[in-house]
């Protein structure tokens, strides 16, 4: 009987933990945000060793620029990376984007490559 009481206590804590987690804030990501997320999820995984961040360069809703922030890494052809970004962006429903690849650690940021996608 005693064991069941502690099971009940565990159950109470579980229910409240669930209700706690269920109040996590979730930002809606639709339209352009969703397309940028698709681009990010497709482009980033095989490049996570040197890419630090991917997103819109500005928050306004008519932005056509994609900024890729990278770690200073030798032996990478950033123009090829920009070409690949264009392909992934077009696949994600973002044609004719301007791609900027920036290196971190400098002020102002050092532009390693920029490309106007077809």
């Amino acid at each position: 009987m005693k064991r069941y009481r502690f099971l009940l206590l565990a159950f109470i804590l579980f229910v409240y933990a669930f209700s706690f987690i269920a109040t996590k804030r979730v930002e809606l990501c639709t339209g352009d945000c969703e397309k940028v997320a698709i681009f990010r999820n497709g482009f980033y995984p095989t490049r996570e060793s040197y890419i630090l961040g991917i997103g819109r360069c500005s928050d306004n809703r008519i932005s056509d620029t994609l900024c890729i922030t990278v770690r200073d890494t030798s032996g990478i052809d950033w123009n090829v990376v920009a070409d690949s970004a264009c392909i992934y962006a077009t696949r994600a429903g973002l044609p004719a984007q301007k791609i900027f690849i920036f290196r971190t650690g400098t002020n102002p940021p050092d532009t390693l490559a920029k490309k106007q996608c077809p």
Partner: peptide, 14 residues
């Protein structure tokens, strides 16, 4: 309160 004023939380999104 969440339902009427803060629908950005997961439980209300559902």
């Amino acid at each position: 309160i969440y339902y009427f004023f803060r629908p950005e939380v997961a439980v209300i999104r559902w």
